[in-house]
């Protein structure tokens, strides 16, 4: 039962990582680790999501 729970949690984490569902959490982690010392505030979730979407679709992302 316990191992089933672990598998379910890992699968869920994999789905979140694959889809980018956890992108903001990863961003916050990165920000606190590397940029917190520079001062200022991290982006809020909505602004972060917006800028990421724009950045993502500036290049060739989909093929034939």
């Amino acid at each position: 039962m316990k191992s089933l729970k672990i598998v379910a949690r890992q699968t869920w984490q994999m789905i979140r990582a694959f889809s980018g569902d956890d992108a903001y959490e990863r961003y916050l982690e990165h920000w606190h680790k590397y940029h917190a010392s520079e001062g200022g505030q991290p982006l809020d979730c909505k602004t972060f999501f917006d800028t990421e979407q724009i950045r993502k679709w500036e290049g060739v992302r989909r093929c034939c």
Binding site: I15, S19, D21, Y24, K46, F49
Partner: peptide
């Protein structure tokens, strides 16, 4: 707008 970033 409703649930920012919740893509799943």
């Amino acid at each position: 707008n409703i649930r920012p970033g919740r893509v799943v």
